[in-house]
Design a protein around this nucleic acid. Sequence first.
DNA 1: TAGTGGTCTAGACCACAAA
DNA 2: TTGTGGTCTAGACCACTAT
Lengths: 235, 235
Amino acid sequence: MSAKQRELAVKLQKRIASGEFSEKGKLPTEDQLIEQYGVSRYCVRGAIAMLAAAGEVFPMRGSGVFVREDRAGNYMPIGTSYGIAADFPDRKVSSFVQELALIRADAELAHRMRCAEGDQVWRVVRLRSVDDQPISYETAWYLKEFVPYLNEEIARGSLYSYMRNDLGLSFGFDDKVIHMDWLTAEAARLLGLNEGDPAICIEDDAFLSNGRLFNASKNVYHYKNARFYSMAAMR
Amino acid sequence: MSAKQRELAVKLQKRIASGEFSEKGKLPTEDQLIEQYGVSRYCVRGAIAMLAAAGEVFPMRGSGVFVREDRAGNYMPIGTSYGIAADFPDRKVSSFVQELALIRADAELAHRMRCAEGDQVWRVVRLRSVDDQPISYETAWYLKEFVPYLNEEIARGSLYSYMRNDLGLSFGFDDKVIHMDWLTAEAARLLGLNEGDPAICIEDDAFLSNGRLFNASKNVYHYKNARFYSMAAMR
DNA sequence: TAGTGGTCTAGACCACAAA
DNA sequence: TTGTGGTCTAGACCACTAT
């Protein structure tokens, strides 16, 4: 979505959070927002669509755009279409780097990374925590072709924003596969669980806007601390 | 999304599946599609957005709309925004009704269903299978206020299409929470697993287009047979 | 430089909810 | 009947890719 729509979405989100609309339970009409912000209807509808995708509001034809009741809080988003999650950060995420190495892809990894065998790949293993609770054990691979340099300090922060802001990479889309898995001894130790405990596992393939895969990762999640939510229109 | 856009999306999907675009690797340009189908750019872009949300294509500014490589097949969609999944069915789903009863909501269920204690609720327990493999044990509740009648034959089929087509309900949105759980003896027996085995659990709250909850359900999934995918734009 | 998708505007009509 | 969001059109300009 465009910057203009995103800006408006953020402004409206703040007004929602302030409780400004809690009496009526709904936002101003589209026409009123057009006037209030001096933008076109296209822009207003784009912003509202973002808020709806994030579960903040639901538009009801003929009636208005209603603010949704608060959904319970301790969940992680899945399928963050339009990247709204990045715009409304409400959780503290920390990463503890366990391993950072430049390796060469074997046959299996090359297949996964859509690269040639022997190509250079960064391998990064991190323990991730949310609000100081261990949440997942992540193993990620990045093609050196697109990420020429990496160090532990960068990996402690947000690799995502490093790649976007410092490397100038532009992201396209990502695929996730969710399934059950079992903890390795190492993952269990770091998560404070036992080897062989079950875990929700998310495999993630991330692509640049030119369609090239640049990052694959495998996250195994703490079965007690990790809960995910997904919201969808059913129309 | 609108019917016109959905129709166009289905037509394009068929052309993609036929391999018509496999040489160039991309769709005709937006302007060409406008001419080919005699529709507006709004409509063309809506259809392409649906295909992109379903992971069929990815549009690349300045270059075209590319057909994506086939993603592996045996996964269930999660967060089916825009209901594309319903339009491109490629799996056989069967349901075996274990229980169907009209009950009255106790305090806990009333809270979950956003209804008053004592209100009438259908309780439906089904074993669901995909391509003849047991995939989940589902416990679902439907408010009698919105679903006045139900029987076993209906429950064997698609409750979703019954409610839409026969009862004329119009759906709004739904919330999912995904977490780990453990199988009960009954669920384990029906899934062919053992009591206490881990399971991915999805709690689903479904709302009508007027914002009223009409259905809540809890699905526990076979940890071997069930895999989910989710695709998202990262822009 | 030409071609293509992304954003944006202005305006029309339709479908539905509420008074 | 009125007001609201949903769909649709026509057209303009911008951002990016490819040549």
